[in-house]
Design a protein around this nucleic acid. Structure first.
Lengths: 348, 348
DNA sequence: TTGACGCATGACAGCGCTGTCAATAAGCAT
DNA sequence: ATGCTTATTGACAGCGCTGTCATGCGTCAA
């Protein structure tokens, strides 16, 4: 009984898988040559290569990733660790990731850290056990253990969404501190004299944004004390309104709000409309990220545009470049940000 | 030279992987017993099991998924095929998927079909080549080839987001036709006499929603002709405003709009505020899905709530139940919908 | 006491592929 | 013609794990 005719041991599948051996038998060559024809075509003569390609097509051969991984000690899986799948920020990043990876033989595997570093560390272990081709992690604030694991990963690693001086390997992000500072300076420049900060889900990046807000107030000689309203709860539009209520109870003189993100800013704006505030004139609102809704909102909502899609795409392109032995560019890529002034801070 | 001491052939990794053999050697048992202790603990005596667990912990053993997959002809990967990673509808579904899968040994692998059935079919082939433990696909409108592939997949398959009479295997969704009809009936019941439909990204589910809209108008004896404004472009908030402009140019008598989704509805509402319409009174707006923003919007936005998180979670629970030989419940799960009447259709 | 039975454990092969090294043919300068 | 390099192909083993079947041992009814 030849190996090829043997039924699968478990009998779970009715149709036996088409293997390299089947293709090789059809062409009359060896399995290793078929393998090479598929993975490193330049090593196989054009004539043989064509016959192999034909047989592959006729038989509908698809490589078994598990066997490839086991034999080669590498996979085509690129792991992406993000804190949330519902946060629009990360869906944009993901769309960039997928746009870069589509058309390549690599696959994305997502890990949801839920904003918890223990979960992140655990997921890193799980991913590494798969010998991934590359890894993308959100943020620069990994635990020391996680950092060590990643440094020894033996594959390209990109930290995204933030910047720091000591990349594990590569980094694609922007300065949250500077971006928030620029936003706050805009409020001050527009003449608002009592700007406040509203924040939810105070992760490390949000904390840096608050620091940028404080730096701008300090530089302008404006008081910070009492002009912040933050929570660690998950962000939402309605929470923006809630936090505005609390803020105004605490600091009624507030004439502008810089929000951690656009959801909160939208919620603030809806609540301000209810209160009859003249948004943009006596009351300024600025968001963060600049989602598509901002330009359509009533009034249109000032924000700090971040390049989330580009971050995902660039991170993945750097990994792919390294895997292909091409130049991945600078270790640290600062994608910057851009102030988008709109009606909500127009000042008449 | 013992096998265990042999250097890895490629030398790519500095630290050799901890294998089952290492654990077995430490405990003084065989690899197969260690394997069983981990996968089917009831087959191993408690005493041995405890010593194995200790050795696993001390050595930091993590199984190699590729080797497991190759030997057992099954993986712990559950594939999820969705049309978009940025559409909030699918991020909610995903969060449900991840909530069900977290804590289990299964991993989610995402496929982005980009609303194209050829891409979907190709991804199904790629996923099947990995022998997934289960598969989740969006919609019920697979190509005949895709259907055949999925029927022969040899693993649990769940179609989500929609309902039909002939599930490939299992189905979790709701009736888009009935939901849209209910929304339109609400507009009519509130006294709007010239309701229109606005839609973008007219995929099969959107098309069924339009059919529901038409059915409601027909039943009420109201004209459909000229009261629809649709596009196949991707949906966005600003597009809602654009489509409203076009609609009003075509049918100025329009006194209410039922939108394909909440993004469009929000855009319609913003544009209507700009035009000075009295939203909810002389001009009604109704969305679809009921995102969190709706309840906070100004005015609050009527919508049809769908249970997206639950769809993802239920689909995954059904797969996990089948994998554990538990009862997955009915083949077809109708999660329904719920009208959420708010200010935007209040009628004074 | 004996045979049947179930439980716990082990030996062995092989999943489908690729790394390594060997073999052969072809090309080329001397 | 000779020796050497380059291009093309193949043989073989083994990646780390699990399915299958075999073995040993204690239990229990007859």
């Amino acid at each position: 009984m030849s190996r090829i005719d043997a039924p699968s041991p478990s009998g779970r599948r009715s149709s036996r898988r088409v293997t390299l051996a089947d293709v090789a038998a059809r062409v009359g060559t060896s399995t290793i040559t078929v393998s090479r024809a598929l993975r490193r075509p330049e090593m196989v003569s054009p004539a043989l290569r064509a016959r192999i390609a034909e047989a592959v097509h006729e038989l509908g051969y698809i490589p078994d990733p598990a066997a490839q991984a086991l034999a080669s000690q590498r996979t085509s899986v690129i792991g992406v660790l993000i804190p949330s799948v519902t946060n629009n920020v990360f869906s944009d990043v993901l769309s960039g990731v997928y746009s870069a990876v589509s058309g390549t033989p690599y696959k994305v595997q997502l890990g949801n850290t839920r904003y918890r570093s223990e979960t992140e560390e655990e997921l890193i272990r799980v991913f590494l056990s798969q010998r991934p081709a590359g890894l993308v992690v959100a943020g620069v604030d990994q635990t020391p253990e996680a950092r060590t694991l990643l440094e020894r990963a033996g594959c390209p690693v990109v930290q995204i969404m933030d910047l720091a001086q000591d990349p594990i390997d590569m980094m694609v992000g922007f300065s949250h501190h500077e971006a928030a500072q620029a936003a706050t300076e805009h409020l001050i420049a527009q003449g608002y004299r009592a700007p406040a900060f509203i924040g939810a889900r105070m992760d490390p990046r949000s904390t840096r944004r608050r620091a940028g807000f404080r730096a701008a107030l300090d530089a302008a000689g404006l008081p910070v004390e009492g002009h912040e309203m933050v929570t660690n709860d998950a962000s939402s539009v309605s929470l923006g309104g809630t936090l505005l209520d609390r803020l105004l109870a605490q600091a009624p003189e507030t004439d502008a709000v810089f929000c951690n993100n656009d959801d909160l800013a939208l919620g603030v704006q809806f609540a301000a409309l209810r209160r009859g505030f003249r948004i943009g004139e006596s009351f300024g609102v600025c968001g963060f990220n600049d989602f598509e809704v901002n330009a359509a909102a009533y009034p249109t909502l000032t924000s700090l545009r971040t390049f989330r899609h580009d971050m995902g795409r660039t991170a993945m392109e750097k990994i792919l470049a390294r895997l292909d032995d091409r130049d991945p560019g600078p270790r640290i890529a600062d994608l910057g940000f851009r102030l988008m002034p709109r009606e909500s801070t127009r000042r008449g």
